[in-house]
């Protein structure tokens, strides 16, 4: 698949189109603005987290390929994307050893165990994050405020925690807009959310840059635009209806849209080519399910944020979605549908 010299085909000899590595490389370009903004707003700590997860993913992929006596697949850039995405979902002051462990888990349990790229049932970065969330629930919900004065010269003390040790608690911590809403009923203004002037995970802050990356990929025809559109529309409409019913208890729809990891999840994670459905109607259903779960978990669940679980659950059922909506072949019995 990756070896260009082995591109043998029968006639007609159409020029080889874009390959996996081209798409993956472009996804990395599309993620870069978000990553750069993360480093700009959170400083050195965020840079270290992003670098650690990326290195961990690439090393794990290389090592596991060698272990199973296969050709190393790190040159297809997919491990880099997994690493970047995982880094972007973590708090900027996350201990580096945990970030490294997350990268290893993402590739080993999220991807390699299923057979590598193209066979993963779930988005690998989210698998890594889900395990980290379950393993270190306190560290992963300790947030670091953005735009500290000394962010480029000093590194958060919890970042450099010795391996397997408990991180020291930073003197300054912040609350994310979603937890501020959930526990204190404070609504952060939408403009601050959209520009990313808030506390949160490394990459879930500047919604505009994430959207720009998405638009770039859609314009190059490398991403299924229906998925993010379906997710965002579902969240907007559902939370809008709830807000109309009771504007005190339920947050305004724009707040729901721009807060937390929804943008990053909808644009870069739910669109994972392997773990999402392939039919046009299928992806719309898939997007609707994610949006519905996000609203349900955020509003009625015990956790402030639910994008990760929503996408993982939808990943799990995406093959079934494709199966359900398969049209019946004319003349076959009803029971044969989808089999």
């Amino acid at each position: 698949m990756l070896n260009r010299t082995l591109n043998i085909s029968t006639s007609p000899h159409i020029t080889r189109g874009i390959g996996t590595d081209d798409i993956m490389q472009n996804v990395v370009w599309a993620l870069l603005p978000t990553a750069i903004f993360a480093v700009y707003s959170f400083g050195m700590s965020a840079l270290l987290v992003l670098a650690t997860t990326t290195v961990a993913c690439v090393l794990t992929e290389h090592f596991l390929c060698k272990l199973s006596k296969k050709e190393s697949t790190i040159s297809d850039w997919s491990a880099v994307i997994t690493g970047l995405l995982l880094g972007l979902t973590l708090p900027p002051n996350f201990p580096l050893w945990m970030a490294f462990a997350g990268g290893v888990i993402a590739i080993a349990l999220g991807k390699f165990i299923f057979g590598g790229l193209g066979y993963n049932v779930f988005n690998p970065a989210l698998v890594g994050r889900a395990v980290l969330q379950a393993a270190f629930p306190v560290a992963i919900t300790t947030w670091f405020p953005a735009f500290l004065d000394n962010r480029f010269t000093t590194v958060s003390s919890s970042t450099l925690t010795a391996p397997f040790m408990e991180p020291t608690v930073d003197a300054i911590t912040g609350a994310t807009p979603l937890s501020a809403f959930k526990f204190d009923n404070v609504i952060t203004p939408t403009s601050e959310l959209a520009l990313g002037l808030i506390t949160g995970s490394t990459g879930e802050t500047c919604a505009i840059l994430i959207l720009l990356g998405g638009i770039y990929l859609v314009a190059r025809n490398m991403m299924n635009w229906r998925i993010p559109v379906a997710i965002l529309a579902t969240v907007y409409v559902l939370s809008g209806l709830l807000h109309l019913v009771d504007s005190q208890a339920y947050p305004p729809p724009l707040f729901m849209l721009f807060s937390g990891g929804l943008m990053l999840g909808a644009v870069f994670m739910a669109t994972d080519m392997v773990a999402s459905p392939i039919t046009p109607l299928g992806v719309v259903i898939y997007g609707f399910i994610i949006g519905l779960l996000v609203v349900v978990i955020r509003i009625w669940g015990g956790l402030p944020e639910g994008v990760m679980y929503a996408i993982l659950l939808a990943n799990a059922i995406s093959p079934h979605i494709d199966n359900w909506i398969q049209p019946r072949v004319y003349g076959t019995a009803k029971s044969a549908k989808g089999s």
Binding site: P95, V131, F136, M165, E166
Partner: peptide
């Protein structure tokens, strides 16, 4: 100050 991997005592 060992950091426990809480996931290990959960069903997962």
């Amino acid at each position: 100050n060992f950091q426990e991997w809480i996931v290990m005592i959960l069903p997962a």
